[in-house]
Design a protein around this nucleic acid. Sequence first.
DNA 1: CTGATGACGGTGC
DNA 2: GGCACCGCCATCA
Length: 112
Amino acid sequence: MMKTYYDAVYDVVRQIPKGRVASYGQVADFIDGCTPRMVGYALFALPAHTRVPWQRVINAQGAISPRPGSDRQRQALEQEGVVFSAAGRIEWKTYRWKGPKTQWLAKRGLLP
DNA sequence: CTGATGACGGTGC
DNA sequence: GGCACCGCCATCA
């Protein structure tokens, strides 16, 4: 079977460590030609029994995208130590995933 | 091939 | 700070 574009998204998401979160846009930045929308599309296509830690991907505002089952996502994150504010948002400066290596820095031109 | 589908993000007010 | 608009593309039946 040919590797689909979505598989590239799953590869990135799988690298997010426990207790850390990434935004859809951040995940997209690791994949050439990928957009935040596509990350969302890809995650929706995941089967229920997947081992991909999809719960660690949230929107740019630090909140869980409203949808059926979002409660489970929040609980899963809280189990990993992620704390939500009263408004249901997390603090990016505390929980943002820094990336697999330094690839995301390079893409942003923050590396020499 | 065509059409339906879907977890976002940036901008402007 | 919050809300409405719009852009946009791989998959699947």
